[in-house]
Design a protein around this nucleic acid. Structure first.
Length: 961
DNA sequence: AACCTCACG
DNA sequence: GACGTACGTGAGGTTC
């Protein structure tokens, strides 16, 4: 438990009383926490179901709630970087105060406290004392006045004050060294939050309140004026007195008259809401210093109240602190207690350099730090930094805001911005201080999806390393077992803790705000929690790697990837927007023509983009036949079916096919690629996901640059728009037949291996072997069929699939497969081996040791298990190819550099790498790329087939491919 | 959000 | 003999 209590500023062990004071010039610095006792009591009373003491039925619910809240506060406070030196609970003494002399109606409408609550007031005071906390109260004054007086006094002494309350009437006190803390909502209230509530800085809150009044306290104010109008007026005129003296200048007639007529009432209201800093202090500040509860006295009180749960909790805590000496953090075992509670209130918001330096020092001391960056956008290549969070121990985390702003209010003419800049360390300063830590080879950095943070920080000049990634660790351990390896999911499963969702802090849908507009208290809870959770996940997951023999996979295939991908993503690729726009126009025109033609052929207008409407036209109205249905039983209108109908001589299907092709190209590519150009770089920056495809393949998104058209002439026009910078070329290097080569190796198929060794045309050789025809002079159709079979094998062939692919009968396809297996019996053996393995273990592995889980192997239905069989056949092949190109990518940057080349790797498309290089480098780059790619499996695996890479340079991607 | 379709390897 | 069907992705448009 005490693990979570260590503040970075203090060395354990310590007790509540031993919080060290920071010395200042005039003695120890005071940090006073003032708890609004009435607020606590009413909240406790209303938040809890009625509870009575068993023995005599005395209502004690509010007392119990109060004790819980107070205890939690005591414990939480210590975990904060700004732990208090002094502490008191402040109570109202009596109903009548000096305000009733000013205005007899003050708080006149307030109902008496509930009957059940009345006997609990004195008990709450007793409770406070039992916890070793002084009670403050004074006849004739409200708690708020006492709080004001102590706050002013301590502030003027140079100390700090935290008012534990959410009462808006106290917000006028907020300032430089005075803040509020709402423990129920876990929110810090500083000037920013006051501005959010009142639209003005704290020193003008009284003026605004005087204008709007308060129906609860029966403060009259000015009729018809609410917070919006009041803050607008104060902001315009500067303060209340100026406003009232210049009221005649106000344009709106009604408002002007109100201010003139009710000027006295407004001034009176100001006196009522204004807190009295000159209230006499019932106890000197020195008497309020934090001390430990007298444990026997506290135990006696809790016993008398019959609060067993609280008593146990308190006892456990005090024992933990006074008992066996807590080991130093460094000496503690790394493994976190799995269920150590995560407490978002324990996190610190770092807003001054000294505190920042302390956190950095802690990270150096511990040697490991989890971190997370918060930004104002999703795309790492363009997002701006909002803040950075760090976690050095489970529960010991902070958030360092650097780019927070107030949301701009739309109420015209108000200029909040100048007045209310968020108080935070300047960004450059934070970057300068974090850089040595994040780049220190002796401090391990841990991130969740670190590629993102790497990319963001690289743009701020920080090259983070060495780095571990919990998402990648999870992916290596459990690829295929879960759909996502996101932090929320991992946290829920392994820490049994649901982190605050982004939606909770930023809102959702259209109202979602940028993270820089999230107020700091909430931002701190969210961001620091992410770092904390990441560290805990790391401690939980990392040991499993070695245990499950996946450490090498992680270290060689995963951990080096983020750096490589960051460089590729940040480099981006140049596309020619003019060319794309012209294509888009061209497509538009032709689509328009095709649409008219389609409507004519159908005899009526319809939406060519709607499969449903196409179905109606073709099948219902035109009576065309189609056997095929979709997964949900609707009539299929996909391309293969339209092709069939077109082949039968129908006109409309052909028109639809042409329209669809253009629609796809325009909708998915031309228009969106232009929109995806980053205005700052003039290039398109994709994002690669490392933990998407279970086989280890990368996935590209936003935009997806792994599915740029290539198969049709029209499509290749889009590929021609991917170009190199002037004086440069694009170089495309792709593995030839890598999956079939790997099948030959893994399945140990002699004929295939020999064919590859001899450099034969593999599909022709397959056809020759199967159909007994010579390779020389083979008909194209024969080779095409063999090619389809070869692909089919890699996918876990079925007669149905093959027949579909080739447009032949299922019987014929079945016969082909039978022949194939007879000719290449090793393939049958390989398939059976994978099926057997997946059915017994629910996973298969690649030759590099990557584990691919296939949970469907345990599925209920036959269909599910068949699916698992095919996935198990495909995964080791696709996965090995993915592993190999990863190895090549990891080695490529160094290889290029060592060859003295400036070429950059830009894109990966599963078996292809695309580079950009100065024209003069082209030949050398091709040589390096080929060498690295062809030798990528070595030395881990000595393949029994050669890998071949074809590479070409050109000014656009299509010509290079 | 589900579905269909289609771009790529 | 029955079971849906090739493996792995991301994205746009329509429909509900």
């Amino acid at each position: 438990m005490s693990d979570t209590l260590d503040s970075p500023t203090q060395a354990p062990p310590q007790t509540l009383a031993e919080t060290p004071r920071e010395p200042t010039q005039d003695g120890p610095k005071v940090r006073l926490y003032l708890v609004d006792g009435s607020g606590f009591i009413f909240r406790a009373f209303h938040a809890l179901p009625p509870l009575t003491r068993k023995t005599d039925g005395l209502p004690v619910g509010a007392v119990s709630g109060f004790c819980n809240m107070l205890w939690k506060l005591l414990v939480d406070m210590k975990a904060q970087a700004d732990a208090p030196t002094h502490l008191a609970v402040v109570f109202d003494h009596s109903e009548k105060t000096f305000r009733n002399k000013l205005y007899d109606q003050y708080k006149a409408h307030r109902p008496p406290p509930p009957e059940d609550l009345v006997p609990q007031f004195p008990l709450v005071r007793e409770a406070t004392k039992a916890f070793g906390v002084p009670c403050l109260e004074l006849p004739g004054y409200e708690a708020d006045d006492l709080i004001a007086a102590y706050a002013c006094k301590v502030r003027d002494m140079g100390g700090e004050v935290v008012i534990v309350s959410s009462d808006k009437d106290l917000m006028q006190l907020v300032g430089d060294r005075v803040s509020m803390l709402d423990t129920m909502k876990n929110v810090r209230i500083g000037p920013d939050q006051v501005i959010e509530k009142f639209g003005v800085l704290p020193d003008k809150v009284v003026d605004v309140q005087a204008l709007c009044g308060d129906s609860v306290d029966n403060v009259p104010g000015a009729p018809g004026i609410g917070i919006k109008t009041a803050s607008a007026l104060i902001n315009e005129y500067g303060d209340l007195d100026t406003l009232l003296s210049r009221a005649s200048e106000i344009k709106q007639e009604k408002r002007r008259q109100t201010l003139i007529d009710f000027a006295d009432q407004i001034r009176l209201s100001r006196e009522l809401v204004k807190l009295d800093c000159d209230t006499p202090l019932p106890s000197p500040i020195d008497d309020l210093s934090v001390k430990d509860p007298e444990s026997t006295e506290l135990a006696e009180f809790l016993e008398r109240m019959e609060f067993r749960t609280i008593a146990r909790r308190v006892e456990a805590h005090l024992k933990g602190e006074h008992g066996i000496e807590t080991p130093k953090p460094e000496a503690r075992p790394l493994a976190a207690p799995k269920h150590a509670a995560i407490d978002v209130n324990a996190y610190a918001c770092v807003r001054d350099i000294e505190t920042l330096d302390r956190w950095i020092a802690r990270a150096h001391e511990v040697g490991i730090v989890a971190f997370d960056t918060e930004t104002d956008a999703l795309s790492a290549s363009s997002a701006n930094l909002c803040g950075v969070s760090l976690a050095v121990q489970p529960g010991e985390a902070c958030y360092i805001p650097v780019g927070h702003e107030h949301e701009h209010e739309a109420t015209g003419g108000l200029d909040f911005e100048a007045k209310s800049a968020v108080e935070q360390i300047p960004c450059e300063e934070v970057i300068a201080r974090l850089k040595p830590l994040l780049e220190d080879p002796a401090v391990l950095k841990v991130a969740q999806n670190g590629k993102y943070d790497l990319a963001v920080l690289k743009r701020y000049g920080i090259e983070v390393g060495p780095i571990e990634d919990t998402m990648l660790i999870s992916f290596v351990l459990e690829g295929g077992l879960r759909k996502s390896h996101g932090m929320d999911e991992l946290s829920k499963q392994w820490l049994e803790h649901e982190p605050i969702s982004f939606k909770t802090v930023a809102g959702t849908g259209k109202a979602q705000k940028s993270f820089k507009h999230v107020e700091l208290s909430q931002a701190t809870c969210y961001a620091a929690e992410d770092a904390d959770v990441t560290l805990r996940l790391y401690e939980h997951l990392r040991p499993r790697l070695a245990h499950e023999h996946l450490l090498t996979v992680y270290e060689t295939l995963e951990r080096p990837m983020p750096r490589v991908l960051v460089d590729m993503e940040l480099a981006g690729v140049k596309v020619d927007p003019d060319r794309l726009r012209q294509l888009s126009n061209d497509f538009s025109v032709r689509m328009g023509e095709l649409e008219i033609e389609a409507h004519r052929l159908a005899g009526r207008p319809f939406n060519l983009g709607s499969p449903k409407q196409i179905g109606e036209v073709l099948f219902k109205e035109m009576g065309l036949a189609s056997g095929k249905t979709t997964a949900t039983g609707a009539m299929s209108t996909d391309a293969s079916m339209l092709e069939d109908l077109a082949a039968q001589g129908h006109e409309l299907p052909r028109v639809l096919l042409d329209w669809r092709q253009l629609s796809k190209l325009k909708g998915t590519y031309t228009d969106n690629l232009v929109a995806a150009i980053d205005p700052k770089t003039g290039r398109v920056h994709t994002s690669y996901s490392l933990a998407a495809a279970t086989t280890g393949r990368l996935a590209s998104s936003d935009p997806n640059l792994q599915n740029i058209p290539v198969r049709t002439e029209e499509g290749r026009k889009i590929r021609r728009a991917f170009i190199a910078e002037p004086g440069h070329v694009l170089i495309s290097a792709d593995y030839s037949q890598i999956e079939l080569r790997l099948l030959a190796h893994i399945g140990d198929i002699p004929q295939l291996k020999k064919a590859f060794a001899d450099g034969l045309d593999i599909h022709a050789m397959t056809a020759s072997e199967m159909f007994g025809v010579p390779i020389e002079g083979m008909p194209a159709e024969t080779r095409r069929r063999a090619k389809a079979i070869n692909f089919g094998i890699v996918y876990g062939i079925s007669a149905f699939g093959l027949s579909n692919q080739l447009g032949i009968s299922r019987e014929e396809a079945g016969a082909y497969i039978k022949t194939y297996f007879e000719r290449f019996p090793g393939i049958r053996t390989y398939m059976d081996r994978m099926i057997q393995q997946v059915r017994s273990q629910a996973f298969v592995t690649t030759i590099f040791g990557r584990k691919v889980h296939v949970p469907a192997a345990r599925g209920k239905s036959q269909a599910e298990r068949s699916f698992a069989d095919r996935a198990a056949i495909n995964a080791p092949i696709q996965g090995a190819a993915a592993d190999i190109i990863r190895r090549a990518m990891i080695r490529m940057p160094d290889a290029l550099r060592e060859a003295g080349l400036t070429a950059r790797m830009l894109l990966q498309v599963h078996d292809e790498l695309v580079f950009e290089a100065p024209e003069a480098e082209a030949d050398k780059v091709i040589a390096v790329a080929k060498r690295i790619m062809e030798k990528a499996a070595e030395p881990a695996i000595a393949l029994s087939v050669p890998l071949e890479v074809e590479a070409r340079a050109a000014t656009n991607w299509d010509d290079a491919h």
